[in-house]
C-alpha cells in the first residue's frame, strides 16, 4: 500500500516538474488552499494533483480520500473511503470503473513515499503471527525514492548522491472523483517489484517514462483499459533508506523525516549493516586502534587481515 508520501518541492519546482504553471479553477474549498511543501502527506489531507483539462495539463488540489458509493453505512458514520486502488481489479469494481470510464485519471507528484517494513527484521516477513501483533511503532519506516539505474541517465547526470536522487520526482498514478467542494483521489497500487518485496507486498503504481505519464494523463485519446495495462506496472527504479519513527505520527513534519535513520537511545536499533558497523566502531574495545587511518576501503582491510 501507499499511505504516506513527501512532496517538498517549492511551488516553482513543482510547476517545472509538472510541466505546467496552470492551476485549475478553484472550487469552494480549493480557494482556501495554499500550496506548501510537505514531508508527511497523510490520507484525508489535500495536495495538488496533475491532470488534464481540455488537453492541457493543470494542477488541482484534491483530498486524499476516495469515497466508496453505494455502500450502506450506519447513522453518524462517515461514508467509507479508500486511499489505494488495486490496479489488477480496478476495472472490475463499480466505484472505480465509473471514475475510470469518466477519464478521471490524475498523477500524484511526490519526492518519495514511505513504507513500513512488514516485519521488524527482514527475513521474518513470512512469520504472519508476528506481523499481526506488531504495531506500526515497532516497525521500521523506509523512505523510497527515485533510483537511477539505467545507463542512459549517466550522461546528463552530474555528480550523483542521495540528495540528487531524492530530488527526482515520482509520478504516482491516481484516480479521482469530482465533488462540488473539492475532488477526492486514491493512489493506484500494484504488486511490489522483486526489489522491494521484502518490505511490503504492494507498492504505488509509478509512471516511469514520459510516454507512460503522457498516456495516463491523455484521457481523451487513451482509453482506461489501455492506460491501466500500459502504465500500471511494478518498477525496479527505486532506492530507499530507513528513517526515524517520527514519520509514523501525522503531526510530525519537516526535512528531518527523510533523513537516514540513526539508532535512537533506548529504542530498538535498525537492523542495518551501516549502523551495525558504526555501533561496532563506537563500542569495540579496540576502538583506540581505530583512531588514525583506521577506516580504509575494504579491499585494503582484507589484505591486512589475511
Amino acid at each position: 500500500m501507499c499511505g504516506r508520501f513527501a512532496l517538498y518541492y517549492s511551488r516553482e519546482q513543482l510547476e517545472r516538474v509538472a510541466g505546467t504553471t496552470r492551476w485549475a479553477d478553484a472550487k469552494d474549498q480549493e480557494k482556501r488552499y495554499h500550496y506548501q511543501p510537505r514531508y508527511n502527506v497523510a490520507p484525508q489531507q489535500t495536495v495538488p494533483l496533475l491532470r488534464t483539462v481540455s488537453g492541457e495539463r493543470v494542477l488541482q488540489p484534491m483530498r486524499w480520500a476516495f469515497p466508496i458509493r453505494g455502500r450502506t453505512f450506519g447513522k453518524g458514520e462517515s461514508p467509507p473511503i479508500v486511499i489505494n486502488v488495486r490496479a489488477e481489479t480496478a476495472l472490475e469494481k463499480a466505484s472505480f470503473r465509473s471514475a475510470l470510464d469518466a477519464g478521471q485519471r490524475a498523477v500524484v507528484i511526490a519526492n518519495g513515499f514511505y513504507e513500513w517494513s512488514a516485519a521488524d527484521a527482514p527475513g521474518e516477513q513470512q512469520d504472519v503471527g508476528k506481523i499481526k501483533t506488531m504495531t506500526k511503532a515497532s516497525r521500521i519506516p523506509y523512505f523510497i525514492y527515485h533510483g537511477v539505474t539505467k545507463r542512459e541517465s549517466k550522461d546528463h547526470l552530474a555528480p550523483r548522491n542521495a540528495h540528487d536522487m531524492i530530488d527526482r520526482p515520482l509520478f504516482m498514478a491516481a484516480l479521482f472523483v469530482e465533488e462540488t467542494e473539492m475532488n477526492r483521489f486514491a493512489i493506484f497500487t500494484v504488486a511490489a517489484s522483486d526489489k522491494i518485496q521484502w518490505m511490503h507486498n504492494r507498492m504505488p503504481a509509478l509512471l516511469e517514462t514520459e510516454d507512460q505519464l503522457q498516456a495516463w494523463l491523455d484521457v481523451e485519446q487513451v482509453p482506461a483499459r489501455v492506460a491501466v495495462h500500459r502504465c500500471l506496472q511494478p518498477t525496479e527504479q527505486i532506492v530507499w533508506h530507513p528513517v526515524s519513527n517520527t514519520v509514523s505520527s501525522v503531526k510530525n513534519e519537516g526535512p528531518s523525516l527523510i533523513e537516514p535513520r540513526r539508532d535512537e537511545p533506548g529504542k530498538k536499533p535498525g537492523l542495518d549493516i551501516r549502523s551495525a558497523f558504526a555501533r561496532g566502531l563506537k563500542r569495540s574495545p579496540s576502538a583506540q586502534d581505530l583512531q588514525a587511518p583506521e577506516t580504509k576501503q575494504m579491499r585494503h582491510t582484507y589484505q591486512a587481515n589475511r
Binding site: 550523483r160 558497523f277 566502531l281 569495540s284 577506516t295 576501503q297 582491510t301
Partner: peptide, 19 residues
Amino acid sequence: LKLMDIDSETLEIPESMYH
C-alpha cells in the same frame, strides 16, 4: 550483456580486531 549504471555506495569497513 548490456551494462547498467548502478548507484552504489562503498561502505568503509572499520579495520577492527575481532573478539
